[in-house]
Simulated scan of single mutants.
Amino acid sequence: MISLLCITIISLTLAGSTYCQSASPSSLTVKTELGGNATLPCRLGSIEDLFFGKVTWTKVAKDESENEDVLVDMGLHKRTYGNFENRASLVDLDVGDASLVLTEVSMEDMGRYRCEIIDGMDDIVQEVILEVENGLTEGVVFPYFPHHGRYNMNFDDAVQTCASQDAAVASYDQLLEAWKDGLDWCNAGWLSDGTVQYPITKPRHPCGGANSSPGLRSYGRRNKQMSRFDVFCYASKLKGHFYWLVQPDRLSYDEAVQACRDDNAEIAKVGHIYAAWKLEAYDRCDAGWLADGSVRYPISRPRKNCSPTEAAVRFVGFPDKKVKSYGVYCFRADQ
């Protein structure tokens, strides 16, 4: 067996991952954020090499009898296993790159992985350690439903909807951490693993029963095309400036969009207002238009006539876009 030899310390960013390599093959480490993607490097000896063999990726346990199969690729036959199904793939064997790409990374994905390449000539074994950082320190989970009402999105709709609000569908781990931080929501929403769940901190009759325990209520995995639910989105730390645009008059939706453009910005998205509220303690008791046609305002200091009992992003609704009853929140991205 021929192992990949490491000569110097290297730091690279690859497909959302950072990896560091030292003189020992076993010390190769990839770091990524919770809910993100990770690329675990593994290559043939030369990009000119032709591949006619087998690639196996395994998650290695302390007791090797408990190892988990991740992926097997034998050219025409490819398979992923267990929790890695539909989340694992290879970069490009045609150019000698057997690196493993994992999407929607969870805390359970942390650990040691082994790549084995058998091509009939030179066999290669490479081990990589995956470390997952809790992205909630740099983001916020929020529940979302569109203007046409609750329980109207299949999984693909949910993915597109979160993306349209500068966010991504939240992972189970992200929702769990948000629940620990106090998120309580009695409407079920999609998560990135295809399950449908909702977080309850204060058990009550309409939300799983008054005598039930606090926690995440799960509907399990649902048909991604046929089932309809809300969604939990995850917004990362802002890369720009979220602000209330001071205007002499209240605006219609179209006027709000134009006012932000005139200020060299864009009308803010729901992901922006949640990130500003949670991560920057943004607080303003003025209801303003957002890009999805909703009207909301962020309160980090509860007080009378604003949000008397809790810090929250308050939701006014999806009013008629022609009414001139609200201001606007804008967002200017970093240059």
Rank of each mutant, 00 (worst) to 15 (best):
S3L: 15
L4A: 13
S11W: 08
L14I: 15
L14D: 15
G16F: 06
Y19P: 04
L28A: 03
T29I: 02
T29A: 06
K31L: 08
T32Q: 00
G35D: 03
L40R: 00
G45T: 03
D49W: 01
F51N: 14
T56V: 15
T58E: 06
A61W: 07
S65L: 14
S65Y: 09
D69E: 04
D73H: 15
G82S: 05
R87I: 00
R87A: 00
A88P: 12
D92F: 02
S99F: 02
V101R: 09
L102E: 05
T103K: 05
M107C: 01
D109Y: 11
I117Q: 07
D122E: 14
D122V: 15
E127K: 07
V132W: 01
E133T: 03
V141S: 04
V141T: 02
V141L: 00
D157S: 09
T161I: 11
T161V: 10
C162P: 05
C162I: 08
A163R: 04
A163I: 05
Q165V: 01
V169F: 00
Y172P: 10
D173Y: 06
E177Y: 11
W179D: 10
G182P: 13
D184E: 09
G189Y: 00
S192I: 13
P199A: 05
R204T: 04
G220I: 04
N223Q: 10
K224M: 06
Y234F: 10
S236W: 09
K239T: 09
F242D: 03
Y243N: 07
S252C: 03
Y253H: 07
V257W: 13
D262H: 10
D263S: 10
N264I: 06
E266L: 05
I267T: 00
K269Q: 11
V270A: 11
G271D: 08
H272F: 01
H272V: 01
K278N: 03
Y282N: 11
D286W: 14
G288T: 13
G288Y: 13
G293T: 01
S294W: 13
S294R: 15
R296T: 13
Y297Q: 08
P302F: 09
S307A: 14
S307V: 00
A312H: 12
F315D: 14
F315P: 12
F318P: 10
V328M: 05
Y329G: 01
F331G: 05
